[in-house]
Design a protein around this nucleic acid. Structure first.
Length: 201
DNA sequence: CGGCCGATCCACT
DNA sequence: GTGGATCGGCCGA
């Protein structure tokens, strides 16, 4: 049995597994696409987590992380990809949970149009940049309130998943200091969970 | 399935 | 100037 779900003001590593199974709906582009979250990673705040964008200090890019919990922190990476986080912890603590993968449960056709290269439906939102692509999420979504009833991007939390269905590993793509922290959580047996990749040297 | 590599650009040093 | 919370194509097994 998993404990009752805390709210988003607790530390990212604590709330992260409770985001598994939640439903994220995007109305970007008009046609709603909904993803059931199957994989997440927690990131900490200033001076706490070398793998986090907020590790050093607040900057223009990571400013949203320093705002209130429940907002979308969206950033651009590798010259072409967007990634989506849920800001967590007390305001100013700069924690976040990266949404890494999900199962598209509504709007499959719209998602497929954005993810032409996806071989099968399970690949539509398999990986953090695939997930944002399937949902049409870009930097314009940075700062959106995910808990707003009529938000362009809305996150609806699910009932806690049984712990025996949750896998835990170190984070993907995070090397150096902070590589060891087991802050990646995923639903066991879900085809949409991205393959684990150790960070490149 | 796993490994290698290029794409492409912005934030930060 | 450097390198990244990545992906997809191509290769070999």
């Amino acid at each position: 049995m998993m404990r009752p779900r805390p709210d988003l003001t607790v530390h990212a590593r604590e709330i992260a597994p409770f985001l598994l199974g939640s439903l994220l709906t995007s109305r970007v582009g008009g046609i709603p696409v909904t993803v059931r979250i199957t994989e997440v990673e927690a990131y900490g705040g200033v001076g706490e987590d070398p793998g986090s964008h907020a590790f050093r200090r607040e900057t223009p890019r990571n400013a949203t992380m320093f705002g209130p919990p429940g907002r979308a922190y969206v950033y651009f990476t590798y010259g072409m990809h967007w990634c989506l986080n849920v800001v967590t912890g007390p305001t100013g603590s700069a924690g976040a949970v990266l949404l890494r993968a999900g199962e598209v449960v509504a709007g499959v056709d719209a998602a497929r149009e954005r993810r032409v290269s996806a071989r099968s439906d399970r690949d539509l939102a398999r990986g953090p940049a695939c997930l944002t692509s399937a949902l049409g999420v870009t930097g314009e979504c940075d700062g959106l309130n995910l808990l707003g009833t009529r938000s362009l991007l809305r996150l609806v939390l699910a009932e806690p998943v049984e712990v025996e269905h949750v896998g835990v590993t170190a984070r993907t793509g995070v090397g150096g200091q902070g590589a060891g922290t087991p802050w990646r959580f995923f639903l066991l047996g879900e085809p949409s969970v991205s393959p684990y990749r150790r960070a490149a040297r």
